[in-house]
């Protein structure tokens, strides 16, 4: 009896431990994307960068990252603090008073996304999204998924027209670069 109980307790303990470990070490896709977003900023150079200013990350559409994105508020990239804001994703006010350095477009209606991209046009804003074929539509970096691995495409042509410089180191890692 007792041995059975001990056995089951050990089993439960091992199970719990395994779960905890997987939660702690295996990063979710979203977490990886947040880290990528953070890392992208390190290899991007905007025109006229005042060192004192924060880097504003504007998050449009549904927040798929959850709490993970909040971590960025505590981080710094090239000695500039990161600030995440969530502007209105209303039809009317969208794209107004764009003061963002980075724009992440979450899952949105294609039309709104197109409008947003049109509004941003060639302003020096890094646009990132995990919308399918985002780069083809005029976005600069688009996440893609090759099997289980998260990769990204880069639209260098758009980046150039927006006066955004992307480090060759980053280009080297891109799955596909549109020139």
């Amino acid at each position: 009896m007792i041995s059975h109980l001990a056995k089951s307790i050990t089993c439960i303990l091992i199970l719990l431990l395994t779960l905890f470990c997987s939660a702690a070490f295996a990063r979710s896709e979203n977490e990886i994307k947040v880290v990528y977003l953070y890392n992208f900023i390190k290899f991007i150079k905007w025109p006229q960068e005042p060192t004192t200013n924060n880097i504003t990350i504007c998050l449009y559409g549904e927040n798929t990252f959850g709490d993970a994105i909040e971590k960025l508020n505590t981080l710094k990239a090239r000695n500039r603090s990161l600030v995440v804001i969530y502007p209105d994703s209303d039809k009317d006010s969208i794209g107004e008073d764009i003061n963002c350095s980075v724009v992440f477009i979450g899952p949105l209606e294609d039309k709104i996304a197109d409008d947003l991209l049109t509004k941003i046009d060639s302003n020096p804003v890094l646009t990132v999204s995990d919308i399918d074929s985002f780069t083809d539509k005029g976005g600069i970096i688009g996440f893609i998924k090759l099997g289980n691995v998260v990769k990204f495409d880069i639209n260098l042509k758009q980046a150039r027209s927006s006066n955004i410089q992307i480090s060759s180191k980053l280009l080297e890692l891109a799955n596909h670069v549109i020139q």
Binding site: N39, F43, K169, E172, L173
Partner: peptide
């Protein structure tokens, strides 16, 4: 220096 990005993005091939 060349390995900065690859390290950040864990790109072992690069």
């Amino acid at each position: 220096n060349r390995s900065h990005a690859a390290l950040l993005f864990s790109d072992k091939a690069t």
